[in-house]
Nucleic acid binder design. Structure first.
Lengths: 234, 234
DNA sequence: ACAAAAGTGTTTCACATACACCCATGC
DNA sequence: GCATGGGTGTATGTGAAACACTTTTGT
């Protein structure tokens, strides 16, 4: 227990599950591996953890490498550690998932990795346990987005209610009633109506909204609707 | 990226946050370290991940080593990886939390580790980032127990409603109304009333209940109360 | 008979849901 | 003038919360 022996050391990688939303569909950014093993197959973007780097640092670095983005929403998903998950080497992988504004994503960087956005339902066959990672990420996203307003991280600064609703519908694979939906999201007080309309997708046009960043920060945890009644809390 | 170089390898440990409930208070099992570094200080029970072991395997092994228990509720909490978290070596730690029936715990095993149960509010100073681990575990427990009926994992086969209520009150540090509480838990259909009463803690005595294991399994996920209305799901 | 904890029911209110019509505009 | 998608209001039901008295029994 005390011998920090060399033989107990492991290779540790990070893998990034990157979600984006194009206004219609929830999407996932995958790369085509340009190196062995499994060269030519699709996978999540990943990389090895360096000696002086935390897992978060590594995931941030890897994400930036692929997308050019920093300061985006990222959350540790799970540590995958089956000794046989990579058939060639024993490599543990810490999976992170990110929510990015797909418009800020810098295409040119991705060319290097042959990256492509995939609809969730249409992802290709993936290496190792990356499919499990994605399934778990999706589940966690559903779980968390039901409680915290994280889906705004996928949207541009200005967005319309119909867009927001499509996003929720995509995440939950559900059809929602637009009257109830708009009442619910507006009742949070998190949205600020703009004067301009988005007029690409309809003749009438839909008003833009912006997120009230201050309230967003403040309400991020308050969004919880299941803890016992606040005034019973000691 | 392709060079799985030796120098990228890391020491990886697991640490176990072990919760128990004595009928009154939510408690935590800690050990007094009998080895360097930090010999003599309190810490979580942990151990290094072995070359052919998954992190889950390692945590299961470590938990059994301390408590003698297998097949208990265990969940991966988080991978802690700050390069400086252990000042002597770079060691990442994957934290797991467990919920055990404190009565099944085998005291004699723990003597070897000088283990003791602590009330959450009265935990001593701990090594490294173990305090952070515990805080996060508690938060996750609150989060999860609000949605899934996991707290039964802390109780013996037979328990009373007042005990169950104390448990919830301990986890949320809250005072609950017993009428509303009993209506709510009984409405889940998860509890089966027994004929015997527990007569230690009151003159009148409180009826024992058992968990309906089949319904528990079936309802474990159905307990969710926030997903969009089921009949809207595709 | 009294103290101590168990057990039980009703009212009120907020929120979630179901549901249908009018509006603005480009063509 | 019509087709397309945007925007709004109401009625109903369910579940959460507040609240107080009776029961049992050991001493």
């Amino acid at each position: 227990m005390t011998n920090h022996s060399r033989q107990n050391k492991l290779l540790v990688a990070v893998d990034c599950i990157i979600f984006g939303f194009d206004g219609q569909e929830l999407k996932l950014l995958l790369i085509k591996r340009g190196f062995e093993p499994e060269k030519g197959r699709w996978s999540l973007m990943g990389g090895f953890v360096q000696p002086k780097e935390s897992f978060e640092d590594a995931a941030t670095r890897v994400l930036k490498q692929l997308t050019g983005l920093e300061d985006v929403y990222m959350e540790q998903l799970y540590a995958f550690s089956n000794p046989d998950r990579d058939p060639t080497d024993r490599i543990a992988s810490i999976a992170y998932f990110s929510l990015i504004d797909i418009n800020k994503y810098q295409q040119q960087l991705s060319d290097e990795f042959h990256a492509e956005w995939f609809q969730l339902a249409k992802t290709p066959s993936l290496i190792f346990d990356h499919r499990d990672m994605i399934d778990m990420a999706r589940e966690k996203l559903q779980y968390k987005a039901a409680i915290h307003p994280i889906l705004f991280e996928l949207l541009p600064d200005k967005f319309t209610l119909p867009q927001l609703q499509s996003l929720y519908e995509g995440v939950y694979d559900a059809v929602l009633d637009k009257r109830n939906f708009s009442r619910k999201v507006l009742s949070t007080g998190l949205l600020v109506k703009q004067k301009e309309k988005e007029k690409e997708t309809s003749k009438k046009g839909a008003f833009y909204f912006k997120l009230d960043k201050k309230k967003y920060q403040k309400k991020f945890n308050a969004f919880l609707n299941f803890i016992p009644n606040p005034h019973n809390l000691k």
